[in-house]
Simulated assay, not measured.
Amino acid sequence: MSEGLTVMDAEAVRARLTIAACIPLMREAMTALSSGRVEQHLRSFLSVGEGRTFALMPAASADGFGAKLVSVYQDTDHPGRRRHQGLVVLFDPESGAPAFIGDAEEITRIRTAAASAAATDALARPDASILAVIGTGAQAQAHLEAIALVRPLTEIRIWGRDAEGARRFAEAMRKKYDCPVRACATVEAAVQAADIICTVTASRDPILHRDWVTPGAHVNLVGSSGPHAAEADIDLVAASRFIGDHREHVLAHGGEFLRARQAGRVTDDHIAAEIGEVFAGRRNGRISPADITLYKSLGHAVQDLAAAAWLLSLERTARHG
């Protein structure tokens, strides 16, 4: 018998799905994707106006099948930022009935940071403790929370295009963490000698350069999710041990990698592994303490469906006592 359709708005998702709970879900989802246990197509994009995109991300896994339907628009309240608004829809694998609809923006915010944390845990040096976050939006705050769950942070640095906004953001974060949090005037100052770097911007051209990144650092490239945008320069891609979240998607939509390949600096073999292969122990992540490990996050429907299935299970458990 069908249990009906569960619908969760952003507030409901936020009240239930924590980043801590989501980290193991992302580890399992990406392992399944790299192990061939997930059917997932490349996301498709439809332009709906200048700087506006509608995307469809379908997948089928052990959790069920479904898709994320999402619009990517400029945030009118925060120039230079983008909003990912939409729905995650999960269908029951047994009955074929729609079982869950959830707010895509909130699920995306949480699962993206959780996926970066899982990758950081696997790729960053065990003693990594200085975090630089490039960006000041919702993903910046989520990544601060997520990375703090996998490494004991001794210093947090923030950079944003709006210096006053970055200062206010750092001040707010200072109240949440038991370590110094400071805003930096430049990206270079923020990442100098940093152990972990997270770029969570809407930049279309590189803001992170190889010369600024210390050997042994781990970098999460998160903000760019299409072939025409890149947050890191070609030199950093070429110098890194490059780990993709999914090889097929990196080769189609990984802007940083595609620019380096077009320049003749790397070939497809430069993708050392998928993160799911690292999680499963089938490929090496970091090989040397001096490696610059780079995790390219594009985001996947299997991640959204894993979070949706967890939320649905939680709701059904509560319903049945």
Results as ranks from 00 to 15, higher is better:
Gly102His: 07
Leu305Phe: 12
Glu105Asn: 13
Ala163Val: 08
Gly216Val: 04
Ala99Tyr: 07
Val187Glu: 01
Ser297Cys: 12
Asp245Asn: 09
Phe169Asn: 03
Ile287Cys: 12
Gly96Arg: 10
Ala55Gly: 03
Phe242Glu: 03
Ile287Lys: 14
Ser71Glu: 07
His41Tyr: 11
Asp211Glu: 15
Gly64Phe: 09
Leu56Ala: 09
Phe91Gly: 02
Ala273Tyr: 07
Leu208Arg: 10
Ala308Thr: 01
Thr120Pro: 00
Ser44Gln: 14
Ala230Asn: 02
Val302Pro: 00
Glu105Gly: 13
Ala280Arg: 07
Ala318Cys: 09
Arg151Ala: 04
Leu90Tyr: 02
Val187Tyr: 06
Ala104Thr: 00
Val150Asp: 03
Cys198Met: 09
His270Val: 04
Glu188Arg: 15
Ala55Gln: 10
Val48Lys: 13
Arg37Cys: 00
Asp304Leu: 14
Thr112Ile: 05
Ala97Phe: 07
Glu94Arg: 11
Ile234Tyr: 01
Val89Trp: 05
Thr186Ala: 10
Leu144Asp: 00
Arg247Lys: 11
Ala183Ser: 15
Ala99Gln: 11
Ala62Leu: 03
Gln141His: 13
Glu94Tyr: 01
Ala20Asn: 01
Thr199Asn: 08
Tyr73Thr: 03
Gly4Phe: 06
Leu258Gln: 08
Thr76His: 12
Val219Met: 03
His320Asn: 02
Gly137Glu: 10
Ala163Leu: 14
Ala15Tyr: 00
His253Arg: 04
Asp127Ser: 14
Val266Ser: 08
Arg125Ala: 06
Arg52Cys: 14
Gln262Arg: 15
Leu149Lys: 13
Leu5Asp: 01
Ile243Tyr: 11
Leu208Val: 15
Ala252Lys: 12
Leu56Pro: 00
Gly64Ser: 11
Thr108Lys: 10
Ala318Asn: 08
Gln139Gly: 11
Leu87Lys: 08
Ile287Asp: 09
Gln139Leu: 15
Thr154Gln: 12
Asp195His: 14
Ser116Gly: 14
Ile23Leu: 05
Lys176Thr: 02
His228Ile: 00
Arg286Lys: 12
Arg52Glu: 15
Glu164His: 06
Ala138Gln: 09
Pro206Glu: 11
Phe100Gly: 01
Glu106Ala: 06
Thr214Gln: 14
Thr31Leu: 04
Gly66Gln: 04
Phe169Leu: 08
Thr293Val: 11
Asp291His: 09
His270Met: 12
Gly321Asn: 10
Arg319His: 10
Ile234Lys: 09
Gly264Glu: 07
Asp235Ile: 03
Leu144His: 09
Arg125Gly: 06
Val38Pro: 01
